[in-house]
Computed example of a mutant assay.
Amino acid sequence: MVTRVALAGAGRFGALHLRAFRSLPVEVVAVCDPDPARLAAVRAESGIAAGYPSLGELLAHERVDLVDIATDEASHGDLVLEAVEAGRHVFVEKPLAMDVDQAMSIQARAAGNGVHVVTGQISRFGAAYQHIRDTLDAGELGAPVNLRFRRDFSRSWFPAFGTRVHPVWESGIHDIDLAVWYAGAPCRTVYAVQRGVSGLPNPDTFAAILTFANGVVATVESAWLVPDAAPQTLRGALELDGTIEATVEVLGERGTAAYRLAHDGLAVRTDRMTAHPEHTLWPTVAGRISGALLAELGYAVDVARGARGNDVMPVEEAVEGVRIAAAIQRSAETGTPVTLRAPEERP
């Protein structure tokens, strides 16, 4: 069965999704974007028959099974709700939303309308991250005790994000989600600090300590301060001249596990640059996009066509990630700890 897909957002990541969809049993029947030039370009490049300036107009005219949302972070919540209210399944790039109440409304409305919402927390679909989860589930590490996460990005990339969104929603949300996934319990307290050095509206770096209801403690750190001379790590389908450094450590009662996203196991050196290409996110293999991006989009397609349940990235865990991210931002801005209440405990 071919799943009919609509794409919301014709930017760089939307175009990347379209390339991945070529390897899946889908037909991308329409795309929407408010920028006419960008809309025309992606339609011409990918041969998409229909284009619209808004998702509302698209949904009013097209029969689709799955809406893929690859727009800026602040627009996610509204677009997800629009698609859910129209009775469509949704794949949305992270974060699910940037407002806790809106995220909870998405969860409720999706359940009420009998549709699934899959959030693109890409790390859950990376083989190494999944292996750590499997190792935890098998009991090889014992009960988790401490989780450590660090994710750093090139300083030169920050102007594109520092005026748009707090880094907790761009870089931190990946590791917040992994903490939720590995801890296996709701988060109860958050304390965070931040610092800005670039002069942009949002901080260049933050660090947070999370405590979970089962006693697990997680540290999440992120900085956009990697210098230009660092090795290039993104090559292939989406090539960016810069660096992502990401590490995770899981410390259990009987063992530990660790993973580093990019490392010198693969090295490319020329007179112009040194690269350590990572092969977890969206590597190109035999001319096609593979890796975690293809896996998560394939998963969303399977969920939309009823081939499997939404067990890898359930919407309630995406909502938990939004709750934690919002608490980190609030704690860092106020300098005070934040206590998270369960939804049923909220006034």
Rank of each mutant, 00 (worst) to 15 (best):
G309E: 15
A108P: 04
G321H: 05
G321A: 13
L7C: 02
I244P: 01
A275C: 13
H17A: 12
R269H: 13
S54K: 06
T256W: 01
Q107N: 02
Q329L: 10
G87L: 04
D35K: 07
A307E: 09
A103E: 09
A41D: 14
V168R: 05
M104L: 12
A327W: 00
P25F: 09
A208D: 00
Q130I: 05
A185Q: 04
V115L: 07
G236Q: 04
A258G: 04
L234M: 12
P283G: 04
E170P: 02
L234Q: 08
P347Q: 08
M313P: 01
R308G: 11
A50E: 11
A97C: 08
A325P: 00
S46L: 09
I328R: 01
A70F: 05
E221R: 14
S154T: 15
A127M: 00
A128K: 15
D152E: 09
V67Q: 05
E296N: 09
A108N: 07
L96P: 05
A327R: 02
P283S: 10
A50D: 10
L55W: 06
L18E: 05
V319C: 10
F21R: 00
V226W: 03
V338K: 00
D99V: 11
A183P: 00
G252S: 05
A246D: 01
A111S: 14
S154A: 14
T219A: 05
L210P: 00
P227R: 11
A262P: 10
Q194H: 09
A37L: 14
F21C: 15
E253D: 14
A207C: 08
P314E: 06
G47P: 13
R288C: 08
L251E: 15
S290G: 13
E344I: 14
L340R: 02
D204M: 05
E73W: 06
H116S: 15
A50Q: 13
D241C: 05
A318S: 15
R305I: 14
V145M: 11
V29Q: 04
D33F: 05
N202Y: 12
D101H: 09
C32T: 09
T256A: 10
T119K: 00
V165W: 06
P343K: 12
G14Y: 05
W157I: 08
T211F: 04
S105Y: 08
G306I: 06
E57T: 01
A74Y: 07
Q107A: 15
K94I: 13
V190P: 03
L79H: 02
